[in-house]
């Protein structure tokens, strides 16, 4: 319409590998490493190098990535301040535990690998559906609240969910749910984490994601562009809850024992610490935050107990300090609003 000076920025050079392809390459690479790792640890090969404890750590990292990435959808992209993520995780964990122990035959009664796969698909699918349903309901109830009040209400629901489970005798009440079969391993968690990251990336880099971010950037403008904020928020809540449920389902079938208390405010806070460490509105940040936090805690534990065994507990004091220091010095976290290339959108189709 008007005459503009020539473009100041030349278009970036065409990319050799589109991000779509790069994403699959990363997936293939991770699975190519995970499969032999899992098999060798299962077979007890190289016990000196491949400590099962390391695999356990990697499994925890994978589950936490699912939790943190899905919370990032709400707190990073949608720009809300949801404080009840552990509640959705609890719903998923208990649903999966119930399905695995009461509704499904044990894996031993089914053909070896296929049987476990079927059990996982059913239990995790159930966990996701149930958590999504609860997330949807909570989204419906809270559609008018924003900011601080949304934080309060989501935390309130977290506590109500935990409290409700404590009062349900058939899932063990406050004593917890025991005897859950161990249907997951690192490999299954890795597949689920990659699936979560892929699906979340796809959604974020679609019209849905643009609408979520626009709500964060300016809710009134978004509304006056025809966005139904209640509807968009409710989708985000439902999706985030579903993935938290997935993590819960994996958690239950990995730990084999869950109590209501493991899903309270403290767990939510831990998820928040990893989220903010990694950075808001960045899936890469979510991965990095989880890995950095987990490794740091391990490192601190080893370092402190090298001085004196009882000192190891003092790392609990260091993790909140890290959080405070991040907030005081680098509020965007390690990777706020930035993505690694394999998670980035296509530049120009």
């Amino acid at each position: 319409m008007s005459t503009k000076p020539p473009p100041e920025h030349a278009a970036p050079p065409p990319e050799l590998t589109p991000s779509r392809v790069r994403f699959w390459m990363v997936c293939a690479l991770i699975l190519a490493l995970a499969l032999p790792l899992q098999l060798s640890v299962d077979a007890g090969l190289f016990p000196d190098v491949l400590n099962p404890y390391y695999l356990h750590l990697l499994t925890i990292i994978g589950m936490n990535i699912i939790l943190v990435a899905s919370l990032n959808l709400l707190n990073g992209y949608l720009g809300e301040f949801a404080l009840g993520h552990a509640g959705f995780m609890a719903v998923g964990a208990y649903t999966a535990a119930l399905l695995a122990t009461k509704a499904l035959p044990s894996a031993a009664a089914l053909p070896p690998v296929l049987g476990t796969c079927i059990i996982l698909v059913v239990t995790l699918g159930g966990a996701m559906l149930m958590a999504a349903g609860i997330g949807y309901l909570i989204g419906l109830v809270t559609f008018k609240t924003v900011g601080d009040y949304l934080a309060i209400i989501t935390l309130g629901f977290n506590m109500i969910i935990v409290n409700a489970i404590q009062n349900l005798d058939f899932v063990g009440g406050p004593r917890g749910f025991t005897g859950i079969p161990k249907n997951t391993n690192f490999l299954a968690v890795a597949v689920c984490a990659l699936l979560t990251l892929g699906l979340l990336r796809n959604l974020i880099q679609s019209s849905f994601g643009r609408v979520w971010v626009s709500i964060r950037e300016n809710a009134i403008a978004a509304e006056l562009m025809g966005v139904s904020i209640a509807k968009a928020k409710n989708w985000a809540f439902t999706i985030a809850a579903a993935f938290a449920g997935l993590a819960g389902g994996l958690w239950a079938q990995n730990q084999q024992f869950i109590t209501p208390r493991s899903f309270d405010y403290i767990k939510t806070t831990e998820i928040l610490v990893m989220l903010y460490l990694g950075g808001m509105a960045s899936l890469s940040g979510s991965i990095l935050g989880v890995v950095a936090y987990t490794l740091l805690m391990e490192l601190l534990r080893n370092l402190l107990s090298a001085f004196a065994p009882q000192l190891a507990e003092w790392r609990m004091l260091i993790s909140p300090l890290i959080l405070i220091i991040i907030m005081l010095t680098r509020q965007t976290g390690l990777l706020g609003n930035r993505e690694w290339r394999w998670l980035r959108p296509r530049q120009g189709a």
């Binding site: 301040f81 934080a151 806070t269 928040l272 610490v273 903010y276 004091l317 993790s319 909140p320 300090l321 959080l323 405070i324 907030m327 005081l328 509020q331």
Partner: peptide, 12 residues
Amino acid sequence: SVVITTLGVGIF
């Protein structure tokens, strides 16, 4: 960021 900081102070 401030709210998160208060969370951190609390845990500390």
